[in-house]
């Protein structure tokens, strides 16, 4: 890890002033479970770390009539332990349960979970975000791509986005608030995620001198939600494919459905066709099956990850059925 200087501001204004205009100037330190590993592997080498954990207003989770506010510094464990969240937003709790290490849940924050960098082993081994050789040729399509993208993978990005909470939050219609030198910016969480076109880009709309301050989730009144994960093992690991589903119900019929898949594309992946097939229908096994197939309609496997297409289909189908049962497995 390269040497750096360290500051621990107590307000978001101070934090933003301590950040720089480029990513090599400064990085934001929250839980640290991803950032410090990235720094040890030389994937990022900031000259300064700005620890935001002393900024009190970024903490806490509050649920009220208007929905849910999750401070960027709320930990995964706090989210998991929050009864109001598990009652009204099972998709969020189930996604948080998939972060299986108690140690990561204690340190890891919501803001950090959304801003974590890809787990792509080429990236982590120093081949750059887009995993290229010295001539700039991509290594993933002909390499070991068993955990790489099956959607949105026409290049140059082939990695999958590592966030497990983002699909659930997007399905529930969440917004994210950012703070920078020009004040507050708010956007749909769906629009926060971007697919990098160059190795210097990031996977979010966050600028080097901005911080995530909070996530706002609208009320879940009349909404049934669930997250289903397909994973290799129960212990600490990222899932192979996940689906988060939110169904706005009118009686026993679906009014509007939102389906978002995780770990299948360089960004959380919305399945619009599958959403439409659920509209104005009662949820049955057949409809859920159909939605799973439609969700993966545009999928393209690389040389070694064809199996993920079927896993994602099943994840979508089971998440829909779970949501219809009120989030129960």
């Amino acid at each position: 890890m390269r040497a750096f200087e360290y500051a621990s501001p107590t307000t978001k204004e101070q934090a933003v002033s301590l950040l720089g205009n480029s990513w090599d100037e400064a990085e934001v330190l929250a839980g640290g479970t991803d950032l410090l590993s990235l720094m040890k592997d030389g994937c990022v080498a900031p000259k300064r770390l700005v620890n935001i954990k002393e900024i009190r207003e970024l903490r806490g989770i509050s649920a009220g009539g208007g929905g849910l506010r999750i401070g960027a510094l709320a930990t995964i464990q706090e989210l998991l332990d929050n009864r109001a969240v598990s009652r009204a937003y099972p998709a969020i709790t189930q996604a948080a349960e998939g972060i299986t290490s108690p140690q990561i849940r204690s340190l890891g924050t919501i803001g950090g979970e959304l801003c974590q960098r890809p787990r792509c082993w080429y990236y982590r081994a120093g081949y750059g975000l887009l995993a290229t050789d010295e001539q700039g040729e991509p290594l993933v399509p002909s390499g070991d791509n068993r955990y790489h993208a099956i959607l949105g993978n026409a290049g140059p990005a082939y990695f999958v986005h590592a966030s497990s909470l983002a699909p659930a939050l997007i399905a529930l219609g969440a917004k994210v608030r950012l703070f920078g030198p020009d004040g507050v910016r708010e956007m749909w969480l769906d629009q926060f995620f971007t697919t990098p076109l160059t190795a210097d880009d990031r996977e979010t709309a966050l600028k080097p001198n901005e911080i995530v301050t909070e996530i706002i989730v609208p009320t879940a009144l009349g909404v049934k939600s669930a997250t289903y994960e397909v994973r290799q093992r129960e212990a600490l690991d990222w899932p192979l494919a996940t689906a988060s589903v939110a169904l706005s119900m009118s009686g026993d019929r679906v009014r509007v459905a939102r389906i978002v898949m995780g770990h299948v594309a360089p960004r959380p992946w919305r399945a619009a066709e599958a959403e439409q097939v659920l509209a104005e229908k009662a949820v049955t096994e057949e409809v859920a099956q159909k939605a799973g197939e439609l969700a993966l309609n545009g999928a393209n496997s690389l040389s070694r990850n064809g199996y993920k297409i079927q896993l994602a289909r099943v994840a979508v189908k089971r998440a829909i059925l779970m949501a219809a049962r009120g989030g129960r497995g």
């Binding site: 360290y6 621990s8 330190l29 839980g31 640290g32 479970t33 991803d34 410090l36 590993s37 040890k40 592997d41 770390l49 620890n51 954990k53 464990q77 290490s101 108690p102 140690q103 990561i104 204690s106 340190l107 600490l236």
Partner: peptide, 27 residues
């Protein structure tokens, strides 16, 4: 592992389990 994945460095910090490889000494 020194990368927040194996647990061999686990310590308790203010009552919570943490990977000490992923906490700065200053923090």
């Amino acid at each position: 592992c020194d990368r927040a994945t194996c647990g061999a460095c686990t310590v308790i910090m203010d009552g919570k389990p943490v990977y000490s490889c992923s906490v700065l000494a200053l923090e």
